[in-house]
């Protein structure tokens, strides 16, 4: 078991009202599984991914990461887990605009204090793996949306994480590119036995998944 939630709830205060973004969610993510969380916009997918990815703390309930209760962890320990065990892929790619594709992929390696030479080798290898060997020195604004998402995936893989969390990875892409990205994520899961959790409302992604969770109004249905 890579991740597990127990009665996971996240509420936000918006002015005078309280919004329940995630409501008593129980789910399990097994190793090497391709899991999709499907739901319309505003259903709580991103919040759920942020909770599983330890970017956020629940209002109540628990998130277990590799059987460890993450509610007991300090911020520093949660960052360490994010750096070493979890890779994030965002809908809008979130590449750092002033860094080249190569440097964006090197970034998590540098943060993990990998020696510079190894950083470079690993980053080149990853970018080659996602088909961007000819785009190493390009800045994000010089890349197409599909290429940017590939760089983001390479970055997510940099520290060999056991879990990849992808939030609407095809949301900003055209149908064909979206399909390519889905195939790429799927192949990662199959070839490298990496667990992938995808929040999406793309039916093709959902169909490709091993496990599908539907979420509506913060609740798994």
């Amino acid at each position: 078991m890579i991740a597990k939630t127990q009665e996971l709830t996240r509420m936000y205060r918006l002015g005078a009202s309280v919004i329940v973004a995630v409501n008593k969610v129980n789910l399990e993510v097994k190793e090497a599984a391709f899991v999709s969380i499907v739901g319309p916009s505003g259903s709580g997918k991103t919040t759920l991914l942020n909770l599983i990815g330890l970017n956020d703390r629940p209002t109540s309930g628990k998130v277990f990461f590799k059987s460890e209760d993450t509610s007991l962890l300090t911020d520093k320990e949660r960052r360490k887990i994010r750096l070493q065990n979890i890779g994030f892929v965002f809908q809008t790619f979130n590449l750092l605009p002033t860094l080249t594709a190569l440097e964006n992929v090197e970034l998590p390696l540098a943060l993990a204090k990998v020696p510079p030479k190894l950083q470079r080798e690993k980053a080149i290898q990853l970018l080659e793996a996602v088909g961007l060997s000819d785009r190493l020195q390009h800045r994000p604004k010089e890349l197409s949306s599909g290429e940017m998402q590939r760089v983001a995936i390479a970055r997510a893989l940099a520290n060999n994480p056991c879990l990849i969390l992808a939030d609407e990875p095809t949301g900003e892409l055209d149908s064909e590119t979206g399909y390519e990205i889905t195939k790429l994520l799927l192949s990662l899961c199959r070839k490298h036995k990496t667990t992938v959790v995808v929040a999406t409302h793309d039916e093709r992604v959902a169909k490709a998944s091993d496990v599908k969770y539907s979420i509506r109004d913060g609740m798994i249905t």
């Binding site: 960052r79 360490k80 750096l83 070493q84 994030f88 965002f90 979130n94 750092l96 998590p108 943060l111």
Partner: peptide, 16 residues
Amino acid sequence: RRDFATLDAIGAPRSS
């Protein structure tokens, strides 16, 4: 904000 949040999400220490 998004750049810093991204750095935070990928595990950059606060000190970085």
